[in-house]
Structure formats: C-alpha cells, structure tokens
Amino acid sequence: MAEEIIVPPELRRNILITTVDKLYNWARRSSLWPLTFGLACCAIEMIAASASRYDIARFGAEVFRASPRQADLMIVAGTVTHKMAPQVLRLYHQMPEPKYVIAMGSCAISGGIFNSYAVLQGVDEIIPVDVYVPGCPPRPEALLDALIKLQKKIDRQSILTVPWYRREKA
C-alpha cells in the first residue's frame, strides 16, 4: 500500500487495530446473559455461583434474564423430565441466535441416576449442547470453569463461518 493513512495529530497514540471477529467476539463473550431457568438441585448451585461468594458477574454473566428473548445462554441445570422436555425445547427455540447451551450436572448430561420412564436421558437429545459440566451437582467453580470454556469457544468463532449468519438456513 503506497498511500499513507493520514491520522490527525490528536488521535495519534490513541488508535487500536484489531479484527472485526475479535471485537465482536469480545463483546459477545463478555456479556453472556443466561436464562433464568432451573430444573432441580443443580439450580441451587447455579444460584450460588451467581451470588456474592462465587460471583459469576466477574465473567459478565450475572444478568439472568427472565425472558428467553433477551438471553444468550441456557444453563440446563437439573433433571429434564419428559413432561418438562417440550417446554425446554420451546424456550430454546424462543432464544434469539447466537445462543449457547451448558448442560449442568449428570442428569442434564445423561439422565444421571434416573434410569426411568419419566426422565429424558440427556438434554443433548433435543438441543445442541456446547459445554458439559459433570458433577452431582457440580460445584459453582465447575460452572464458572464451564463458562470460561464457553468464552474460549466463542473466541474461536468467526463471523464468516458461524451458522446463524449464513444465507441458507443452517
């Protein structure tokens, strides 16, 4: 590039250069708003993670939204029964993209100890899961670790390849 970019003197030493992806992902991953949504005892640990001792606000995910329209992240915290499964699916469909799912605890991952007629054997049967957190229930630290893992996953995404900006339906 032969032409020189002219920068006004008052802006010199005040310019950062980055990529669109990086800026976009930084903004998204720093404000992952979860859906207010708990199904069983794992929800208690999720609440503990959001309270002052573990403080999920350090990672920008403290705004638990009461409406799926405003949420980016669904933390499936607990046993998904077959009676609840259609509602879980519906809430997931009501969330705007980009959206992410954390399956928290053994029950959400695989049904856990509930090898029975009433319990869905893993929430990944109905919705795509990004991060699995094992534990019964997982400690708040484990949930925070899952959140950090999800943030790293978001950092690796590119605006050109993510499914929700493709022209054809993903």
Partner: peptide, 29 residues
C-alpha cells in the same frame, strides 16, 4: 404427573420401567 396419553400406568407391577427417547413419546403428547 404424566400427561393424558402416556403409555401405561407407571406404578403397576406389570409396567416395564425402561427409558424413553423424546421422539418415542412425541406422538403421545
């Protein structure tokens, strides 16, 4: 607790306590 149309009466002794997939129960909902 279960919905109308759920196959069987769960606490009867002749009820086979197996797991169901989501798709399997979808027509009964």
């Amino acid at each position: 607790f279960m919905w109308e149309g759920f196959p069987g009466w769960p606490l009867r002794k002749d009820f086979e306590n197996r797991t169901f997939t989501f798709k399997e129960l979808e027509p009964t909902r």
